[in-house]
């Protein structure tokens, strides 16, 4: 028996909206601690990982660990039948569920849907705990804007960290450009820029993955970029009170 109720169903919709550009079919894992999802994009280049803690739900029960294979596209079709202010409950009775039930509740309306599940033999990847040598926290809409703008100039974006801040740069056929974001300790947390740099990094990434993933900026006003030289970076959007949505992407190696 599994039941998870989102107080803010709009949050679940934003999560699916953010990952639908990157992953097609995913295994939703549910257990006593909460719900998690880990899936690679279709080209196996990037990895998306979602973690939602049971404490963040209005109601949460999961007697036995469950794996529910679902198509993100079909999940979205079901979620499109809900309102952004609805409370959304996910539920299944069986131990080996073949469908996942959804209840959308608003003040004057309650809807019930069932999504057919699929069996996906997707292997999980072990993400090692890593001490990152550069960790940058900055406004998510600023990061989204920089990636979109510089992505117009070149498909690869350079990121260079220092104790003063983080520099994004591009060198393309049409020309080049750079954007340096300085640290600031403004009292408004959503505008803060913090850099913990034990070792500076200078890495280059395929910015199209950032642009696909940055739909997740609707989930959080801040984004955390964790990097180490020649290691995959993590883009993390903290989901208030619930958990986080992460994208892992390896840097491009200059040939």
């Amino acid at each position: 028996m599994f039941e998870a109720k989102f107080e803010d169903g709009g949050l679940f919709k934003k999560i699916v909206e953010a990952i639908k550009e990157l992953v097609k079919n995913v295994n939703l894992e549910a257990n006593g601690t909460g719900i998690s999802l880990q899936a690679m994009d279709t080209s196996h280049v990037a990895l998306v990982a979602l973690q939602l803690n049971e404490k963040g739900f209005k109601k949460y029960r999961c007697e036995k660990s469950l794996t529910m294979g679902l198509s993100i596209e079909n999940l979205q079709k079901i979620l499109k039948c809900s309102g952004n202010d609805d409370q959304i409950t996910l539920r299944t009775q069986d131990e080996e569920p073949t469908t996942l039930s959804f209840t959308f509740e608003s003040k004057n309306r309650i809807s019930e849907f069932q999504l057919n599940l699929m069996s996906l033999d997707q292997e999980q990847l072990g993400v090692p705990d890593t001490e990152y040598s550069s960790v940058v926290r900055m406004p998510s809409n600023e990061f989204t804007k920089i990636c979109r703008e510089l992505g117009n100039i070149n498909e690869a974006i350079g990121i260079e960290t220092s104790k003063e801040g983080i520099k994004f740069y591009v060198k393309g056929d049409i020309g080049e450009g750079q954007v340096s974001v300085k640290i600031n300790d403004t009292e408004k947390p959503e505008e803060r820029v913090e850099c913990e740099v034990d070792e500076p990094v200078n890495l280059s990434f395929a910015v199209r993955y950032f642009n696909l993933f940055n739909k997740a900026s609707a989930l959080s006003s801040q984004v955390i970029l964790s990097m180490s030289q020649d290691q995959p970076l993590v883009i993390e959007y903290i989901i208030e009170e619930m958990g986080s949505l992460k994208l892992y992407l390896a840097p491009k190696i200059n040939d």
């Binding site: 280049v45 292997e123 090692p128 498909e155 995959p232 892992y248 491009k252 190696i253 200059n254």
Partner: peptide, 14 residues
């Protein structure tokens, strides 16, 4: 524009 390695090169299948 450089070589893009897949994430599976860094994270092993469990």
């Amino acid at each position: 524009q450089g070589i893009q390695n897949p994430i599976t090169m860094f994270f092993k299948k469990t």
